[in-house]
Structure formats: C-alpha cells, structure tokens
Amino acid sequence: MQIDWITVAAQIANFLVLVWLLQRLLYRPVVRAMRNREAAIRSRFAEAEKREAKAAGEVETLKQQQLEFQQRRAALLAQAQQEAQDLEHRLEAEARERVAAQRAAWESQIDRETAAFLVDLRREAAGHVGRVARRVLNDLAGARLEEAMADTFIAQLNGLTGKSLASLRAETTSGGRITVASAFDLPDPLRNRLRKAVRAVVYENAQPDFVRDPQIGCGIRLKVRGQTLQWNVSAYLDDLEKEIGVMIGREDRQEAAE
C-alpha cells in the first residue's frame, strides 16, 4: 500500500475539474429545469384553483339563474292559468249570453208562431165548430142554428142580474144605442124575438140596431157604449186556445229541461 503523490495531485485536479464540469453541465441545468417545472406546476395548480373558484362562482350564478328562471316560469304559468281562467269565464259568459239570446229569440219566435197558430186554429176551429154545431142542431132538433143561438142569447139576457144588468140599463136609458151584431144576417122573426127580449129585460123603448160582423164568429153580441153582452162560440174557442197554449207551454218547458 503506497501513495503516489503525483497521482494524488492529479486526482485532486481531476476531481475539481469534474466538480466544475458537472456543476456547469449537470447540476445547475437539472436543478433549474426542476425548479422551472415546479414553478410551472405550481402555476398550473394556482391556475386550476383559480379556474375552480371561477367555476364554482359560475355554478353558483347558474344555480341562481336557474332558481330565478323557475320562479319566473312559475309566475308566468300562474299568470297564464289566470288568463286562461278569465278567458274561459269570459267565453262561457259570452256563450251563455248568446245561448240566452238565441233562446229568447227562439222563444219569441215560438211565441209568435204559437200565437199565429192559435189564431189560425181559432179561425179554423170557429168555422168547424159553427159548421158542426149547425149540422148537429139541424140533425138533432131540426131547428136553425140562428134560432138556437138566439134562444141561448135570450136566455143569457134573461139571466142577467145585479150590477151587469144595472149597468146595461143605465147606459141604455142615458141614450146609448143598442147594437146587436152577429156573424150572419138574422131573419126578421129572430130580430123581433131579440128586440122583444131586449125591451123586456133592458129597456122597453129600445130600438136595437142589427149589424153583421164576421169577426164575431158563431154568436150574437149586444153592445151599449162600453157595456157588452154576448154569446158565441168564441168563448169555447178561447177555452180551446187556452188549452192548446197551456199544452204548448208545457212541451216547451220539457224541451228546455232536456
């Protein structure tokens, strides 16, 4: 074991040179590269944290916006529902008004048609009743219809009492003209009978005027100013008209209920 001091000196020099070379070529660049990379990584971490914070803020903002959107949507939905209900009510009211108007028009038309029908019916019925009554009276009793009507009218006149009779007499005695109207011309014997009956019941000096009035229908009417006494088939026709009117009204109510 020996030491070569020249080699020792050379090795010291070699080692120092190696230290210098490695410091320049290896340690310093490598350490610098590592530091740069660490700095870059730290920078990326900081950037990532910043982005994360920003993303968290954006998430919070989006949540807030979503909440506001939901609230606005709920408000709009409620408003739309309210408007829809209002529209529904308005349309329903309008429909009801239209239906009511149509119903009123329809009922008015029905009333008009009913009235026209009843008038026609009344005329037709009066004619039929007159013809039937004449035929029945001719067939059964052999008497003329005018005589039967005159008898009935005279019986009604004779049956007058109380206030009606007093009013009739008062009008006649105060100068009122007595008019006896019928739908057909009365023969003289019937006029005499009627005149006698009037003089016997109302006023003994009465001079009744006999006129023909087709509007009366099958019957006789006595009129003094405002006082009227009559008998004719119109009373029966009125009853028939009432019955038909009641029947038609009942059918209308049943249709409305359905």
Partner: peptide, 21 residues
C-alpha cells in the same frame, strides 16, 4: 479516472443538450 469523467461528462452533455423544461 478520465474514462469515468468522460462518461459522466458525456452523460451530462446528453442531458444538457436535450434538457426539457
């Protein structure tokens, strides 16, 4: 010793020349 030094310096040069940041 020089061989070892040469290897080390060569390796360091390889790293130095292709150093990646």
């Amino acid at each position: 010793t020089w061989i070892v030094m040469a290897l080390l310096v060569l390796s360091a040069l390889v790293v130095r020349l292709r150093l990646s940041q």
